[in-house]
Write a protein that binds this DNA or RNA. Structure first.
Lengths: 203, 203
DNA sequence: CATCTTATTGACACTTGTTCAATATCGCCA
DNA sequence: TGGCGATATTGAACAAGTGTCAATAAGATG
């Protein structure tokens, strides 16, 4: 058993190392905020020198951006609507997948969202992009407009609805109270058509 | 005209200096994010030494918290419902005041919200507190429950509605499109009863 | 006008981000 | 199998910003 520092540097392929560091970055976010994720901490946790992180990511913010992008891609992939079935059912499944994803990865998800929403231009861009993708599915899956016609006004409404969903899921997961998962899903999915109707320009 | 440094230190009362620094802090937030607001920058801008800031606020995060609290109190005061009139009218006026406040102080408001929502425990606490106060008014002013009965479920709904409002106002102010201020107000105020109805547990 | 309180300063120690020449690991080929 | 070369990796040095504190001077008070 070596004393304190067993300095046998291990050499990975760039792809492997990148993957390791990004994965570790995402994992560490469960316990810390994005800007508490210092280069020092990550280097120590990964068992590498600080310099190596700069070799791979250039600087701290670029690393943060890479981590957020990594997690964002993961979220988007995990909540993709299923291939078959009725359009509206596919949406339901996708929304449910979103709720379950947040439930399962709560700390990391919250940390990510807060870090990205409060971060620099690029970070917010990624955050916006995720919302955009999730919202876009509404119009993409519901091509006939059974639920929501694709109008500029309704785009705004869906945007607001998405913000509401994020808040609701986080609030619910923090304290479910007496509301079950299915009831939450009911609230979320019921809210969209209600909003669309309420906001429809009167003729 | 003194050369570069006219070092005549001016001595203010603690209250004056505190006020000056907080006001300057809030003002500087219009052009920078919260964590780009370094002690260095603020000291230079205020024409004082860094040490003085530490004398008044202890450390950087404490200063941030004080700035955010200052701005939050301002927002709450400026959107207070009027004294007289119908309960529902008072709410309308208050919501309108909120929209106008955000419109007038846009850069600073966005910077504040992002900084606070993405910040530490205390910062988020202040952010939550503001939302809490704004939401609380709904139930306070509408004591008879004409609009929303005070139930746990509706508290959740109002919370989601508040998040939606924030998003809508920011999105609208960023790009109003063809939506007028009054239409936006219509959307916001129309959304609340619609949500409440949609979410009501069926009997 | 002298004195005393205390608002204010400036220099110093320390943490954290960033750079880069030097080092050592591992695949490859003789 | 053993040396060689490409390059993944390191560590020391530097920059910038945070936090500390004994020393200083502005302005009120008598």
């Amino acid at each position: 058993m070596p004393s304190v520092t067993a300095t046998t540097r291990t050499r990975l392929t760039p792809a492997e190392r990148r993957e390791q560091l990004l994965g570790l970055g995402v994992r560490l976010l469960a316990d810390r905020s994005l800007d508490e994720l210092s280069i020092d901490l990550l280097a120590e946790e990964a068992g590498i020198s600080r310099g190596l992180l700069y070799h791979y990511f250039g600087n701290k913010t670029a690393f943060h951006e890479a981590v957020v992008r990594h997690a964002a891609d993961d979220l988007i992939a995990q909540t993709a609507p299923p291939a078959g079935g009725e359009p509206l059912d596919r949406l339901l499944v996708s929304v449910a997948a979103y709720v379950d994803y947040v439930t399962a990865n709560f700390e990391g998800y919250v940390s990510l969202v807060r870090g990205a929403a409060g971060g620099n231009e690029t970070l917010r861009g990624i955050y916006e992009e995720v919302r955009e993708v999730l919202s876009e599915r509404i119009f993409l899956e519901d091509a006939q407009g059974e639920l929501v016609h694709d109008t500029p006004r309704n785009r705004l409404v869906v945007r607001g609805w998405a913000a509401m969903c994020e808040e609701l899921v986080i609030a619910w997961r923090t304290d479910p109270g007496e509301v079950s998962r299915d009831e939450l899903l009911g609230i979320i999915t019921g809210a969209l058509p209600a909003l669309v109707d309420a906001v429809a320009p009167r003729r």
